[in-house]
Structures are given as structure tokens and as C-alpha cells.
Design a protein around this nucleic acid. Sequence first.
DNA 1: TGACAATGTTACCGATCGGTACGTACGATC
DNA 2: GATCGTACGTACCGATCGGTAACATTGTCA
Lengths: 203, 203
Amino acid sequence: MSNKHSPAEPAEPAVEGKPKAAERIRRTARELFYREGIRAIGVEEIVTKAGVTKPSLYRSYASKDELAAEYLRDYEVAFWKVFEAGAQTHPDDARAQLMAYIEGLSQRATQAGYRGCGLTNAVVEYPGDDHPARMVAETHKRKLRERLVELSAAMGAREPYMLADGLLLLLEGTYASGQMFGEHGPAESLVAVANQLIDASLR
Amino acid sequence: MSNKHSPAEPAEPAVEGKPKAAERIRRTARELFYREGIRAIGVEEIVTKAGVTKPSLYRSYASKDELAAEYLRDYEVAFWKVFEAGAQTHPDDARAQLMAYIEGLSQRATQAGYRGCGLTNAVVEYPGDDHPARMVAETHKRKLRERLVELSAAMGAREPYMLADGLLLLLEGTYASGQMFGEHGPAESLVAVANQLIDASLR
DNA sequence: TGACAATGTTACCGATCGGTACGTACGATC
DNA sequence: GATCGTACGTACCGATCGGTAACATTGTCA
């Protein structure tokens, strides 16, 4: 069995100073896809900026669509790391854990050049449900919704599903509006609004 | 002065059975851009589905980008018609007016194939702030935010700006999540969450 | 030194992209 | 009935799209 077209883990995680071609492509694609959008970026631009050539890209990834899906898988890993970071600093306090993420998000989403959530953006770019990148994004959002239900229940909400939905709407609203309004968009009010919603949802 | 490249109004509003070429293009572009995304649709496909030819498109619209901007201007007009529809049925009741829109939105956003807000989607598709379509969208979202402040003040909110931001986050969150989750997404809880938020914001 | 895998080089493919030069059909006017 | 402006179509442009074939070069390990 060849490992071609399935570099799930980087194998050699760039220990040596020189990252392999596949890894350079991955990183470059990640940045370009996120900043400019997947449809907006051609494979030519990716390999040029990565300092490699097209055949190298297609030796490690089956297609541009698959590279896009891979980018989103990386994005998801990074997301969870940030999202769950509060578990260390606030163990046994679901509300504080969640609010730690929300406070950080509010900061990021009110900075110029903010580009929202790469997973959500991919769903907007690919309306058809057959695109590999979209499938990664949809699956992730369902996981996020479940996680929010857990956190809502742990907070003691009367109706955890409703609070989770409300929080998810606020998060997605922040991702979207963060890239429409400049530095003083509605994401500035995210923390206060989330607290209001949580307070109103507790018994 | 020629009216080329500025058919602000259809001039002959399709009174005769035959819509002019520009009008057919406008309508076809509107549907295709909304359903599939602007970047995903080529001008060739637009003119083919509209039953006209490319030169006809470029006689009425300076470029694809300008046609996209025109599409969003139409979209905005349609949006306000829906958004303000509650003013007729519930005069002098800001909360009922807004909730009428929110209830309708919750319905639409929980149907399979929902595509969210065309204006928001355009912002996601064009991150650079120099695209004409994006400028239309950004301007509109600022107007929407202002309108929500008015409505929040009319409802008697302690802090109208904060309630308006919270509502805008919920709306944008619904546009986004409505196209990620199928028929039972978080938009199902929109009405209840919005009511909770409004209640908590009143004195 | 030799073998092998990974990468680079060059050149190319068919398809589609946004956009345009140019010719033609038609209805009104004198 | 010749003339003219409007509206439209035919045919084409150069550029870029995603993707590939064939071969040369490199580094590593035995």
C-alpha cells in the first residue's frame, strides 16, 4: 500500500529545518485558502508561493478539492485547540471555559482583516453537498453543536439544546459579521450578549 | 449621453410580454448567483440560461463584477421589502414587526437547500475590499445595523446598541448555519432565543 | 558505489474564463 | 424606398483553469 494521496499525518513533522514539499504546500494552501478563499486561489499560485512545482502537489494530493479538504481538516484541529484551551485554566467550570473562547473570539473578530471561520466560509463557497471540503465543514459544525449542548448542560441550563443553538447562532454571526464590519462591528457586544443569553437560560 | 452601463431602472418595465435582454440577464444572474455563488457562475452560463448572448450582457453591464453588484442591489431591495413587511400588519409595535421577520426567517432557514443571505455570501466570496459587489453588501449591512438600533430603541431596550448587535449576530448566525445544517439546524431555536434576548434587554 | 525514493524541470493538454470585433436583422423616419 | 439607429448574434481573442507525461536531479541509506 502506498501512502500517496493520504498523508494524514506529516510522518516527519518537519523536525529538520527543511520541510518536505507536501508540508510546504499544506502550509501555503492553508494560508492562501483562508485569506483569499478556495475558489479564488489557483494551484499555480499555491506551488509558486510554496516554492515547489505542480507535479509535487499532485504527488501528495489527489486534486485541488482534496487539498482543500485537507486544509479544512488542519483548520479543524487548530480550532479545537483554541476552543478547548479554557479547560486547562478553568477546570470544572463550563461557563468560564466557554467564555474564555468567546472573549478571545470577540477580540479577533473586531480586528481589521478578520476572515471569519474557514469551515463556514467553505460551506458558503460550495453550496453543492458533494464537495469534499464542504463535507468536512458540515461534519465539524455538527460536532461543535453537540459540544455546545454538553457545555450548556454542564452550565445548568433549563433547556441545553436551546441555549446551545443560541450560542451557535452567536458564534456563526460573529464569524460572518466580523468580516463585514471593520474594527467596531457587532462582535464587540458578543461577550455581553452571550452572558445575557446564558443568564436568561439558567434556572 | 447614452444609457449604456447604467440601466438603473428597466426603463420599459417589461410591460410587453417580451422582457428585454438586459432584464432577462438580470433575472437569470440573480437566481444563479444566489443559488451557486458568484465565483461559481460564468457569464457563458448566465447568457445561455437567459437565452441571449454574451455581447448582449456586456452592452448592458460593464463587467461581470458590475453585474454581480447589480444583482446585490436588487437583492437588497427585495430584502427590505420582506424585512419591513411587518410594519403594515403591526404598526406602532416594533417588537412585533421585527419578530414577524424573524419568524419567517426561521422558517426559511430550516428548509433544505436554504442558501443564506446573498449579501453576506458575497462578502465571504470577495475578501478584498475593492470589489464592487462587496461594497454594496457592506453598505447594506451597516444600514441594517442602524435599523436594528432604531427598532431596539423603539422596543425600550436599556442599551439599544447592544440589543441591536445581539440581534444582528443572531440574524447572521441564522444565514450561515441555515446552509450548513439541514432541516433541523439551530435556526429552529431562533425565535425563542431572540425573545429571550429581547426580554433580558428591556428594563 | 549502487539503488531507490523524493523532488524539480519542462512542456504540454483540453476546458473554461471574462471580454470583444464585426456583421446582420428590423422598425421608424423622411 | 433609401437611410439610420437599435438590438442582437456569430465567431473569435488571449489568459488562465486544473491536471499530466516524460525525464533529469538530488539526497539518503546500505
